[in-house]
């Protein structure tokens, strides 16, 4: 990656981008490019440096060293001009609880020099878009987590940004609310908005991202499309075995030759193989009697486990 040529057309361009907090290295010399119109993800566990990277892209946190260009400009010099063209949905929501739902949007519009009538028109359109049209004059605090997140997304869109930054957009939301958020982000992508998001959910990365980088301990450890990463670092299928807690067999040697790779986790055993059913049948032939067997498609979680030897969500 380090020898990737400079791409002046990239919407975001980072080379050797580093963030230090005192002696702590939060982001360690990362390289990446984000193209116009794509959905780009930072996948990694908590503390991997995703949020610090996002804050540098958002021109709030100055880079400690390395090169960063956003929309072709230098955040250190033209922060306000870049921010005028960004939409930001932070991890901890920063909605104004002392303002009503719609006020949150048109008050925010003022910071971008959007004239009153335009701001009101966009507010109405955006509240409809995130399905909060009937909540115009409601207080913010009683809204559900999913509604607040959608309101935060609507507020970030008030300036019609070219680039939307979302830091863990669905963390803490229930499955229904997550799918609603994914659906809205997908529609935005269809409209040509470039989306950059962080997540520690592999399904989110698979659903939304055209390309992603896997971050661990402040570094980028892999990059590519979800499919490419799975092909490169995992097998087509995974066989998951669970054994009764008091009847966990001595597996030593018994799984030899059944799979390309075997991962023994505290609660289950994963066998990486291109044919999960065949491996399951072989297990039974060898006299192993797991409490449950599951054959599934490989996911990014498997990629992460393979690269780092750790699970994404401990």
């Amino acid at each position: 990656m380090a020898d990737t040529p400079t791409r002046p057309d990239a919407l975001i361009h980072a080379r050797g981008l580093t963030k230090l907090f005192g002696s702590l290295v939060a982001v360690d010399a990362v390289d990446f490019d984000v193209d116009r119109g794509e959905a780009f993800g930072f996948l990694g566990p908590n503390g991997a440096g995703k949020t610090s990277t996002m804050r540098m892209i958002g021109c709030v946190s100055p880079a400690s060293s390395g090169e960063l260009r956003v929309l072709g400009m230098d955040p250190a010099v033209e922060g306000p001009r870049i921010r005028a063209r960004l939409g930001v949905v932070p991890q901890a929501d920063t909605l104004d609880r002392e303002l009503r739902v719609a006020e949150n949007l048109y008050t925010y519009a003022r910071y971008f020099d959007i004239a009153g009538p335009v701001a009101r028109k966009r507010t109405a359109e955006l509240l409809d878009f995130v399905q909060l049209g009937d909540r115009w004059d409601d207080e913010v605090e009683p809204l559900s987590g999913g509604m607040k997140r959608r309101l935060a997304i609507a507020r970030a869109l008030i300036s019609e940004p070219e680039l939307l930054l979302l830091d863990e957009p669905t963390t803490g939301l229930d499955p229904q609310a997550r799918h609603m958020v994914w659906d809205r982000l997908y529609r935005l992508k269809q409209r040509g908005v470039t989306i950059v998001l962080t997540t520690h959910y592999m399904d989110e990365a698979e659903q939304l991202c055209d390309r992603l980088v896997v971050m661990d301990k402040a570094k980028i450890v892999a990059s590519g499309s979800p499919r490419e990463l799975i092909e490169r670092y995992a097998t087509r299928e995974v066989l998951e075995l669970r054994f009764a807690i008091d009847a966990a067999p001595d597996l030593d040697g018994k799984l030899q030759g059944l799979a390309d790779r075997v991962e023994v986790l505290p609660d289950r055993v994963l066998l990486y193989t291109d044919d999960g059913d065949a491996a399951a049948a072989a297990i039974h032939q060898r006299g192993l009697r797991p409490e449950s067997t599951l054959v599934r498609r490989s996911t990014l979680e498997d990629v992460f486990l393979h690269i780092t030897g750790r699970r994404l969500i401990e």
Partner: peptide, 12 residues
């Protein structure tokens, strides 16, 4: 409330 964080995500 992180009001300032929201403001700093704009050109302010």
């Amino acid at each position: 409330m992180r009001t300032y964080d929201a403001m700093l995500a704009s050109p302010l």
